[in-house]
Simulated assay, not measured.
Amino acid sequence: MPRPIWSGTLSFGLLNIPVSVMSAEHSIDLHFRMLDSRSNTPIRYERVNAETGEEVPWKDIVRAYEYKKGSYVVLEPEDIRSAASERRESIDVETFVDAGEIGPEYFEKPYLLVPGKKAEKGYVLLRETLRRTGRLGIGRVVIRTREYLAAVMPRDNALWLLLLRYPQQLVDADEYAVPEAELEHYRVSPRELEMAGQLIESMSGKWKPKDYKDDFRDRLRQVIEKRMKSKGLVVPPAEQAEEMPANAATNVVDFMTLLQKSLASNRRTPAKNAPSKPATAKKSAPAKRAAAKRATAKKAAPRKPVPAGKKSAGAPRRGRRNAG
């Protein structure tokens, strides 16, 4: 189960609701590494001194503010801590506003609020009250070390914490050349407005988030898998001699391929292709019998012809049965 960003209280007026702030996003981005094209080795970024070019360890790094080009004021850790808000483990709702008053440009990042133990009643009370009044709670929250403006919003059975941008973060539309004159100035006729309205009406439907997905990410993954099956792999030197499994792109183990390779590696080499090896202390049974026969044939003396009418003493008589 995911761990909470922090656990604290959601407070408005005199009511305090124990909650946990949980992440409401999944990271689905494909991450890339940059390589040196000459050797296909990873590029490492180092913290180096701009004047000496030497790497600087973390313990020797301080924070500073550049108040003008090339001029800095160094800040100590306690200076930054002194500027941090005291709202470490609380979401303090300061006011409630109509949900439609906040433009989409203010919403930045979503979190889910999960009630603490035995805090369900207060959680449901705030959720239902916001839903029935059509309002959002506006307050401040500290996540990690930074204070954010935030909105508490009901959605289905949950309360959402939506981080908001401050007005100073937004660019005023007046800074760009956007059309500001009346419709007549741009020769937009009532008939054109009517037809555009009919077109939008014909294309309208209900919002179904599940009907949409990141097609670019899927197509890019297919390109990566295709490249992995071709000659686009860069592997460590120790693995270059090994053959890449055909299913490497899917992370699924192909047991049949592995078994076939295992059997092939243990298969006996045919005799005609087998290299000659020195004799060992132990021999197989057929080899022993063949060697014994050759030795007997060499030691046996040539047989002399037997005179007629005289039989060899050692020759067995034909037709005689062995006793027993």
Rank of each mutant, 00 (worst) to 15 (best):
Y67D: 06
M228E: 14
E94T: 08
V142S: 05
A83L: 15
L30F: 02
E94A: 10
S265K: 15
I91L: 12
I138T: 01
T133V: 03
A24N: 03
A150D: 02
E89A: 09
R135S: 12
A173S: 15
R3K: 13
Q222L: 13
V178Q: 05
I80K: 06
E25D: 09
R155I: 10
L162M: 15
A313W: 00
L263V: 15
R318N: 07
E55Y: 00
E46R: 09
W6Y: 09
Q240P: 02
K293N: 11
R87D: 14
E242L: 12
Y65Q: 09
S23Q: 12
R33Q: 12
P307F: 02
L183E: 11
R132L: 14
V234M: 06
A297Q: 13
D156N: 10
P245W: 00
H185L: 03
S20L: 04
G70S: 11
R135G: 02
L30A: 07
A238S: 13
P77I: 02
E105R: 01
L193Q: 08
R132P: 04
R144T: 14
P57R: 02
T296W: 09
E76C: 04
P237H: 05
L35C: 03
D172W: 01
K293I: 15
T296Y: 11
A158D: 12
R321N: 10
R132V: 10
S204P: 02
F216V: 15
K311Q: 15
T280V: 10
K261H: 00
L163E: 00
L258M: 04
K298D: 14
A83S: 12
H31E: 14
F12K: 01
F255P: 00
E194L: 09
R268H: 11
K109N: 08
F32G: 04
M22N: 10
V234R: 05
T145Q: 07
K282E: 11
S85W: 01
A84L: 13
S312M: 08
I143M: 07
N247K: 05
S71W: 12
E120S: 13
S284R: 06
R294Q: 14
M228P: 06
R317W: 10
V21Y: 00
D36W: 02
L159P: 00
N247C: 00
V142E: 01
L233E: 08
M256E: 01
D60T: 08
E51L: 08
E94D: 11
P167K: 01
G53I: 05
P245V: 00
R33E: 08
P270N: 00
V114Y: 03
R165G: 06
V62W: 02
S20I: 07
T145S: 11
A83T: 14
Y65I: 13
H31N: 12
R44A: 03
T133N: 08
L113T: 01
T257W: 01
Y123N: 04
K117D: 15
V223P: 05
G70Y: 07
E86Y: 10
L75E: 10
Y67K: 03
R165T: 11
R135D: 02
L233K: 12
W6A: 06
P245Q: 00
A285G: 03
Y166E: 14
I224D: 13
L35W: 03
A274Y: 09
K69R: 13
D172K: 06
V48T: 06
I91F: 04
D211A: 09
E54N: 09
E194F: 05
K298A: 15
P278T: 03
M203A: 10
V235I: 11
L263N: 07
Q240W: 01
Y148T: 04
K121I: 15
E55G: 02
K226T: 14
A281D: 12
